[in-house]
Design a protein around this nucleic acid. Structure first.
Length: 154
DNA sequence: GCCAACGTTGGC
DNA sequence: GCCAACGTTGGC
């Protein structure tokens, strides 16, 4: 069964254009230090599709589509003391944090803003709305279709 | 830059 | 196991 996700990024740090520039090699999604978000990553399967979301920007919203190309594996930055994501409590024998690799898939026709998502009753159950601080969200197929539909309306 | 919401930590 | 203190996220 195909699964759908939404991943947030601050475009100043890493944007959808940056992901596209990475080409086929994609990008390891390091630095996630929240258990719920980690659990979502551990459930991701190769070829699952991802809504790429820009946060802390004007306006915030979904900017494009990415795809999972590597399933979860330990986030090595948690074990590197010189990394800004270093977690002294993460044990190399039993890693606490994981990451996945994602790759650019395609652009959508236009930005779908958070404001529009919040205004759409069909999307009131989205984790993006109900768990606004969670950086990696699960998306249902119906929600996915609705967002894509919105992106195709001018 | 502010601040509300909320996840995490640590003392007890 | 409770909960106050603290840190972070993210919209505005």
């Amino acid at each position: 069964m195909k699964q759908f996700w939404l991943m947030k990024s601050e475009p100043d740090a890493f944007s959808f254009d940056d992901l596209q520039a990475k080409g086929k090699q994609g990008e390891p999604w390091d630095g996630v230090r929240n258990y719920q978000a980690r659990n979502h990553m551990q459930n991701m399967k190769k070829n699952d599709l991802v809504l790429f979301y820009h946060s802390s920007t004007k306006p915030a919203g979904v900017v494009g589509i990415a795809k999972v190309i590597k399933e979860s594996y330990p986030d090595f930055t948690a074990l590197e003391p010189e990394s800004k994501y270093f977690d002294p409590k993460s044990d190399p024998e039993n890693p606490r944090w994981f990451m996945v690799d994602i790759v650019f898939q395609k652009h959508i026709k236009r930005l779908v803003t958070l404001k529009e998502i919040k205004a759409n009753p069909a999307l009131s159950e989205m984790q993006l709305v109900t768990h606004s601080r969670l950086s990696i969200n699960q998306v249902t197929e119906q929600q996915w279709d609705e967002i894509i539909k919105m992106s195709e309306l001018s």
